[in-house]
Structures are given as C-alpha cells and as structure tokens.
C-alpha cells in the first residue's frame, strides 16, 4: 500500500533573500472557476480586480487563493500553482527587471496575467509595496533562480 507523503514544489529550492526585499513562499490552496457568459457573477470581482480571495483572471474566469474554496463548481488547482509574496522598498526595482507594467496604473487590489522574465505569472498587488506572484509549480525553480539573479 502507498504511504502518501506530500512533496512541496519548493523542496530543494532556495528562495533568495536580500536587503530591502522580502520573498516568502506562501502555503495556499488554489481553485479555478469558469462560468458561462450570462451566469450569476455576484460576489466575484470584475476585470483585473481582486476581492477577498478571488482574483479575476479574464472573462468568466476566476482564481481562488486561500483555503476552503466556497464554490463547489471550482476546480482544485492547489497542486498546479504556487505563490510567492514579494515585498519591500526595492520591490519595484526587482519586478521591473522582468515585468513590463506601469506600476502607477497597477493599483492596490489589481491583478493581471503577465510575463515575468520568460514565464507566465499572475501578479496581484496586495499593498503599496507588497505583491503576490502566482505561477505554475514546475516553474518554481526557474522563478527562484530568476529572483536570485536579480536581487
């Protein structure tokens, strides 16, 4: 019989540290919700917005970040995705090395799919100088190396 022992995607990967930047791997569950056009979107955020634990990912699509997704029709993606919290006074210098976004127009509470370096990520601005990066678990090592190179 199998002794099921979960493996963390961050096993064997060093998360970089440096002055002025705090990078933390977040232990979160994820779920993707896809609805049909015309469905009831009550309680879900609008385009590129994040509310509570829901992030709008595009037309009729949301990502839940947290524990215990309240929607049974959402599909569990907890093993597919990982998240990093990146904060600190130098956070813009770090992220601007790989993300082509105007930080003045990307206000707190906003989220968007974008490219960091060569990888697709979801970026959520949680506070003025605090961001959450969500990306595919197989890219954890690449992202850690990318961040280590740039910090």
């Amino acid at each position: 019989m199998i002794d099921w022992q979960p493996t963390s995607p961050w096993t064997g990967i060093d998360i970089p540290m440096c002055d002025g930047i705090v990078i933390v791997a977040e232990a979160l569950s994820f779920a993707r919700l896809r609805l049909l056009p015309g469905a009831d979107f009550t309680g879900l955020p609008g385009p590129r917005q994040a509310q509570n634990r829901w992030l709008n990912m595009g037309p009729c699509e949301w990502l839940f970040c947290g524990n215990h997704c309240p929607r049974p029709d959402a599909i569990d993606m907890s093993d597919a995705l990982v998240a990093l919290s990146i904060s600190g006074e130098n956070v813009f210098d770090l992220l601007s090395a790989g993300i082509a976004i105007d930080w003045q127009r990307f206000s707190v509470g906003t989220c968007a799919r974008m490219r960091l370096g060569e990888t697709a990520v979801v970026l959520h601005r949680r506070e003025e100088q605090q961001f959450r990066l969500i990306f595919g678990a197989p890219f954890a090592r690449y992202l850690a190396e990318w961040l280590a190179h740039h910090v």
Partner: peptide
C-alpha cells in the same frame, strides 16, 4: 540580459524531479 545558463529559457521540472 539575464537569459544565460539556467535562465536562458524556463525549465519545467517534474513534481518528483528529485
């Protein structure tokens, strides 16, 4: 830029790579 060595392009690792 940084696109040299391991950062040349993203490498995808299997969940049980180790």
């Amino acid at each position: 830029g940084a696109r040299v060595g391991n950062l040349m392009r993203p490498r995808k690792f299997l969940p049980a790579h180790g």
